[in-house]
């Protein structure tokens, strides 16, 4: 059985990575220095710069962070779109027809949930 979102859930499973996401949600285009400063000053989390950099790599692989090189510095922005997959995968029960547990990938058309008049 293939778990398609393993990287997404692994990224979310670490409390420091969730704090990094909290701080990235404050504003886009943050340098590694700003992220480290925010962790120390706002959360008293002092891990090495390399440690934060590795956390950012995990978040980027999961699609939760976008890294952009602008000029001579590297900027990080939160991209929370993959989180929508979690709520669409498990919609509230009884609201609409739940997606069938097909292991062959997503259905071709997204099920529109609330369609009753």
């Amino acid at each position: 059985m293939v778990d398609d979102d393993a990287e997404l859930f692994r990224a979310l499973a670490d409390p420091t990575r969730r704090l990094i996401m909290d701080e990235l949600a404050q504003r886009p285009d943050q340098t590694l220095f700003e992220i480290c400063s925010r962790l120390v000053m706002n959360h008293a989390v002092s891990i090495s710069r390399q440690g934060v950099s590795q956390h950012l790599d995990v978040l980027e692989r999961a699609g939760l962070v976008r890294t952009e090189r602008r000029g001579r510095y590297k900027l990080h922005t939160l991209t929370p779109a993959p989180l929508e997959r979690i709520t669409t995968r498990w919609p509230p029960t009884g609201s609409a027809s739940p997606p069938p547990p097909s292991p062959a990938g997503p259905p071709p058309s997204p099920p529109s949930p609330q369609e009753h008049p």
Partner: peptide
Amino acid sequence: FTQPPTDFGPVTVAVLDDTCGNL
């Protein structure tokens, strides 16, 4: 500015590009 003024309680900081290769 790579970082606009950010309030950290005891200190408020910002980071700017000096256009000479430094922040």
